[in-house]
Design a protein around this nucleic acid. Sequence first.
DNA 1: ATAATAAATGCAATTATGTTGCAAAAAATA
DNA 2: TATTTTTTGCAACATAATTGCATTTATTAT
Lengths: 138, 138
Amino acid sequence: MAFDVLDILKRNNLSVTDSRKKILEIFQQAGGALDHADIEKKTGDSFDRVTIYRTLQTFEAKGIIHTIPTIDNSILYALCKEECSQGNHRDNHIHFICDNCNTTYCLNHIPQSVVQLPEGFTEKRTDIIVSGICNKCK
Amino acid sequence: MAFDVLDILKRNNLSVTDSRKKILEIFQQAGGALDHADIEKKTGDSFDRVTIYRTLQTFEAKGIIHTIPTIDNSILYALCKEECSQGNHRDNHIHFICDNCNTTYCLNHIPQSVVQLPEGFTEKRTDIIVSGICNKCK
DNA sequence: ATAATAAATGCAATTATGTTGCAAAAAATA
DNA sequence: TATTTTTTGCAACATAATTGCATTTATTAT
């Protein structure tokens, strides 16, 4: 566990700091997606709010985490799978958000160009967000 | 035009007020999706910010407008099509957001249950957001 | 048409959310 | 271990969103 976290930071040429280690661990334990407020809750007052914002920004820029669109005004982040490389790590994810427990699942299913766009439209990224009830809440 | 707007309000048992009429007209003229800030710009200082927030909430509750997930932290709203009834007015929309001009298009294409969910997961709503370049910006 | 009732609005205050500059602290490098 | 580079925390600031309440406006019943 601790090894994984160190490894991720080193692979991405990031300084190893307490906040970065802690936030990565939180993502690993959570499994699903988290927003800034979730992380702030889980870190208590160990770190400044600003540090959390900046850490999330750094991780996203490096492709360690990716954002998930939401219907409310929060920004959800989730750990990228191994396969997600710099360029395409945002593409082809399907996310499931449980209406009951609010957990976000990253489904690894890759949609085969589902959408038929009108003439003149070019697709760059497609996000599919499914909401409903998850297997734990049913 | 003015008739449409009145009609919508009456069909939904809403009091006819200046702000509600104006905001509906703005949506009709815009065609695409708008967030709170867009509407505030277009109304100038005719109405208080709070009134705009409350009007959007009311419209969403009535199924007159629906929200669209976004990757930034804005809440986008768009007029529902006629066919969208109370219960399902959020389902089966595909939205296209242009990376260049930022316009949001409501595509009427209805996906035929694209996603294969794992056992125990129940789908209630599916949002598909495609981003890229629109036909005007290409 | 007018009075009574109900609903919506505007204002002020409050809370939440996000950003920036800079000095101090910590990490990486030589 | 000393030097350089990077990250952090603090303070200030900016924006976004919510709530309660008095006033205004719209609806309704007479």
